[in-house]
Computed example of a mutant assay.
Amino acid sequence: MEAERLVLRDDQWAKMAPYCLGKASDPGRSGHDNRLFLEAVLWIARTGSPWRDLPAAFGKWNTIFKRYRDWVKADVFQRLFDAASDDPDMEFAMVDGTIVKVHRHGQGAKGGPQSQAIGRSKGGMTTKIVALTDALGNLVRFVLLPGQRCDIIGVPPLIENLAFAGFMADKAFDTNAIIAELDARGARVVISQHPGRASKRRIDAELYKWRHLIENFFCKLKEFKRIAMRSDKTDQSF
């Protein structure tokens, strides 16, 4: 396995390492090479391959998959994300959404698709990712919705208890409720105006151009093929 095909930088790993399970200081059995395990998970996400096709250099695929599910259930990946994104630039929060198609292998979870943020839209069975990034286009929070749901219902959980000086979004998020919430917070509103809005608000057109950073984020996100096409049955794993 060539080193240049690995994903984690040393500085990222230094932030994540204390939050991994199976460290030598943890009770119980120690995990074998946590960094290599995370690289295995990232390889699956990047290539979109089935777990059975994991290269032998990472170890036994079924052992790694079981370990992955254990970490999912223990919410370890959320802690790793929080550790790696601990210094967001909240001068502006930017929000947008994207649709991902659900592979047939991602369907069939207990409770039906509606319980796993899967719904039928124009693209078939899809999941919607609504994300909030900081002013630099780095992910801060996200929510999953069934593909047919409106993006704006994802906004309240994204901004809850989150401080930011301004809010930037396209016209899909131009609603009275969102703008009233932002005005109440004293946040600067840079939301493209919906053509049907009766009372127009002035926005900074030059500042709005920086919204391309969240578009760039989604482009980078979809380089990970297992995200660009959902193959996981449960929201937890996805």
Rank of each mutant, 00 (worst) to 15 (best):
A40R: 13
A40S: 15
W43R: 10
W43E: 09
W43V: 01
W43H: 15
I44M: 11
A45M: 15
A45K: 14
R46A: 13
R46D: 09
R46K: 15
R46H: 15
T47S: 12
T47N: 09
T47D: 04
T47Q: 08
G48Q: 03
G48V: 01
S49Q: 09
P50G: 05
W51Q: 01
W51N: 02
R52V: 01
D53S: 10
D53K: 10
L54M: 01
L54V: 02
L54H: 02
P55A: 01
A56L: 08
A56I: 09
A56C: 00
F58E: 08
G59L: 07
G59M: 05
K60Q: 14
W61S: 07
T63F: 03
T63W: 11
I64L: 15
F65R: 13
K66L: 06
K66M: 04
K66D: 11
R67M: 02
R67D: 03
Y68T: 07
R69C: 09
R69I: 11
R69W: 06
R69N: 14
D70W: 07
D70G: 02
D70Y: 09
D70F: 05
W71P: 05
V72H: 10
K73A: 08
K73V: 00
A74E: 15
D75W: 04
V76I: 15
V76T: 14
F77A: 11
Q78N: 10
R79V: 04
R79F: 03
R79M: 09
L80C: 12
L80K: 13
F81W: 13
F81A: 08
D82Y: 00
D82R: 12
D82W: 00
A83H: 13
A83Y: 12
A83M: 11
A83G: 10
A83P: 11
A84D: 13
A84E: 11
A84T: 09
S85A: 12
S85H: 15
S85D: 02
D86H: 07
D86G: 06
D87H: 15
D87I: 11
P88I: 05
D89P: 01
D89Q: 09
M90C: 08
E91W: 02
E91L: 05
F92H: 14
F92Q: 14
F92K: 12
A93I: 11
A93M: 12
A93P: 10
A93D: 12
M94L: 12
M94S: 06
M94P: 01
V95E: 04
D96P: 02
G97C: 08
I99V: 12
V100S: 09
V100P: 06
K101C: 00
V102K: 03
V102Y: 02
H103T: 06
H103E: 10
H103N: 14
H103M: 03
R104Q: 13
H105I: 12
H105R: 14
G106A: 04
G106R: 09
G106K: 08
Q107N: 12
Q107L: 15
G108V: 03
G108A: 03
A109C: 05
A109Y: 08
K110M: 08
K110V: 13
G111R: 04
G111F: 04
P113Q: 05
P113D: 06
Q114Y: 03
Q114C: 00
S115G: 00
Q116K: 02
Q116T: 00
Q116E: 11
Q116Y: 01
Q116S: 00
Q116P: 00
A117T: 07
A117Y: 10
G119W: 07
G119K: 07
R120M: 07
R120P: 05
